[in-house]
Design a protein around this nucleic acid. Structure first.
Length: 583
RNA sequence: UGGGGCGUCGACAAGCGGUAAGUCACGGGUUUUUGGUACCCGCAUUCGCAGGUUCGAAUCCUGCCGCCCCAGCCA
């Protein structure tokens, strides 16, 4: 436990921000949660302690939306020298499973956060929560209700109609105690009884109309097995778990805003060891994807993707396989900020964050996705020129690898056009281009197959240009990536794109299925890569020059596999589009 | 016909009565053996609308309008 009563975030980070006086760059943009915590601290609340928690329900995998919550909760704890617990909110055994518990742990750790020994489960508190319920009954503030689900709904009323009291509302404390004990003992069938908080059936807030707090569910729990035939509801369990853990700031999403009076009611009416407060912020929405667990689970179940970790998924494990880095995700989350207005963040912000991170860390190598043979006619057949090329062109001191220039190489099919459009400075009949680090070649002829398709380019090189230099200073604007036909390795490349082709696939009045992008995955099985790429291990990041950032995956049928994380910005594509539009 | 929130550039988002930060996107340019990167420039006379208070309002008041959430024995 760190004792940091007087430690302010500013002073804590001051030594790092040497530049401008009071700047607090490293804590991210200002936000109301940080402000609240700071003012609570200033007011001397909670003995200067800050304790948060990240409370996932283990019924699905974590996604980028959770990352926002994780970064916020762990971030606030870090910043204020506090703690952040990992708590599994496992009060509904029907949907939950240890598979998810394990995956969640892995993802949080991967994102870069450490909850140390503070891993908890709401199910750890079942006995204590049960005692809290008894305390409520004894105070005349909870009762066992025999109304079936549909009747409860009916008695609850609606937005415009007040509710009606349950016929069991006046049940004696003794009888409530006995019935509740029998519920716990497993004497009743599912749904036969519920324990309800006795609050106010007239309340304008439906959550306060005697909400059920315990239901009978004779279902095995992934951790407590068959020890409990009754399980507490979220509203009851969550705030009390917070109190038991000494949480000071219970940060959750906007839809719980009108649960807050209920959250407070339990804390006010029970003898609790701490008094946490709930603070709500807007959950993350991203364009061109869906974020609800239900829809993600549906994509998996219906085999529209290859599982929770399919690189097209916005899940953390999917993004990891896609090649996203924790640093990129954290930078992204920092930039989008934290506020209460719900909106949709443009994916381009996320894409920018990955490019930025990958640009700084990736070695540059060459791979050809759609190979087109290029033969240098005036290059001797048996000759193999060794070329030292930098792995990090902007930082040559970080090392080289050797390239082999041979008479026949592969270039990208997209880099050749029989008819060069305006401003095209790649290959075309008669055009001279540079093969990166190798030499200048001029296309002299093309070879076609029986159907007239170009299957090979015939070129002549300028021997003086070895290394790619322009011997006489002549301008050669185009530089292409290439690999030696004699030395290249074969590889499978998976090209990923947005899972949906509209900004908001979850739009009302539509089924998201109609927006699934059929081209979100393209598999190329005949890519040619420079040999060094065959030595990378799964998870390694690399830039294929001029193409994008790729991440090595598990070999497939003995072949090297790379997943494309994100393409490079393509200003030619933009230019061409404009050119076409203009004409 | 109820309750709870929220409305600042195309998208996020600062702003907390003293005269609209930043990021992404977009447009233009410089450098470049990645049409990448980096760098430079431009991009809200206006803060949902209408009144009011004030020397002064995105910030305070009033009234409208719009959007989101709530009627699980889910979380």
């Amino acid at each position: 436990m760190s004792d940091s009563k007087t430690e302010r975030p500013d002073s804590a980070s001051a030594p790092r921000g040497a530049a401008a006086g009071e700047s607090r760059q490293d804590s991210g943009p200002a936000n109301f949660v940080r402000e609240r915590i700071a003012s609570d601290l200033a007011a001397g609340l909670n003995d200067g302690r800050v304790a948060t928690r990240f409370p996932p329900e283990p019924n699905g995998y974590l996604h980028i939306g959770h990352a926002k919550s994780i970064c916020l909760n762990f971030g606030m704890a870090d910043e204020f020298a506090g703690t952040c617990n990992l708590r599994f909110d496992d009060t509904n055994p029907e949907a939950e499973d240890t598979e998810y518990v394990d995956a969640i742990r892995e993802d949080v750790r991967w994102l870069g956060f450490d909850w140390q020994e503070r891993e908890f489960f709401a199910s750890d508190y079942f006995e204590r929560l049960y005692q809290f319920a008894i305390e409520l009954i004894k105070a005349g503030k909870a009762y066992v209700c025999s109304l079936p689900a549909d009747k409860v709904r009916e008695y609850r009323g609606n937005f415009y109609q007040p509710g009606k009291d349950s016929p069991d509302r006046g049940r004696s404390i003794e009888e409530n105690l006995e019935l509740f004990a029998r519920m716990r003992a497993g004497e009743f069938a599912d749904g036969q009884y519920t324990l309800r908080a006795k609050i106010d059936m007239q309340s304008a807030n439906l959550n306060l109309r005697d909400p059920p707090i315990y239901r009978i569910k004779r279902v095995d729990h992934h951790r407590t097995g068959n020890a409990w035939p009754i399980y507490p509801m979220y509203d009851f369990a969550h705030g009390l778990s917070d109190a038991l853990e000494g949480i000071t700031h219970s940060i959750c999403t906007l839809e719980f805003e009108d649960h807050r009076p209920l959250y407070d009611w339990f804390l006010d009416n029970l003898e609790v060891p701490a008094r946490p407060q709930q603070i709500e912020f807007a959950r993350l929405n991203l364009t061109y994807t869906v974020m609800s667990k239900r829809k993600l689970a549906q994509l998996v179940r219906e085999r529209l993707v290859d599982g929770w970790n399919d690189p097209r998924m916005p899940t953390l494990c999917g993004m990891r396989r896609r090649g996203y880095t924790p640093e990129a995700i954290r930078a992204f989350v920092e930039r989008i900020g934290v506020a209460k207005r719900d909106g949709v963040v443009d994916v381009s912000l996320l894409e920018h964050a990955v490019r930025e991170d990958l640009n700084a860390r990736c070695p540059r190598l060459m791979g050809v996705l759609r190979p087109l043979k290029l033969t240098i006619e005036n290059f001797p057949a048996g000759r193999s020129e060794m070329i030292e090329a930098p792995l990090f062109p902007d930082e040559p001191e970080r090392g080289n690898r050797t390239l082999r220039l041979t008479r026949t190489v592969y270039v990208e099919r997209d880099d050749f056009r029989e008819e060069a459009p305006r401003k095209w400075f790649r290959l075309a009949p008669g055009k001279e281009v540079r093969l990166r680090y190798a030499c200048l070649v001029t296309c002299t002829d093309v070879v076609r197959d029986a159907d007239g398709n170009v299957v090979e380019l015939l070129c002549r090189w300028d021997p003086e240009s070895l290394g790619g230099k322009s011997p006489d200073g002549r301008k050669v604007k185009g530089t292409l990536h290439w690999v030696s036909a004699d030395h290249a390795i074969d590889a499978e490349i998976r090209l990923y794109d947005r899972l949906f082709n509209v900004e908001n696939p979850a739009a009302e009045g539509h089924d998201f299925h109609e927006f699934i992008n059929p081209d979100a995955l393209e598999v190329i099985t005949d890519a040619k890569l420079e040999p060094r790429l065959g030595e990378m291990s799964p998870g390694e990041h690399v830039q294929f020059e001029r193409l994008g950032y790729f991440c090595a995956d598990q070999p497939h049928e003995g072949m090297t596999v790379f997943n494309r994380t994100i393409g490079l910005r393509d200003s030619w594509a933009k230019l061409e589009k404009k050119l076409k539009a203009d004409s």
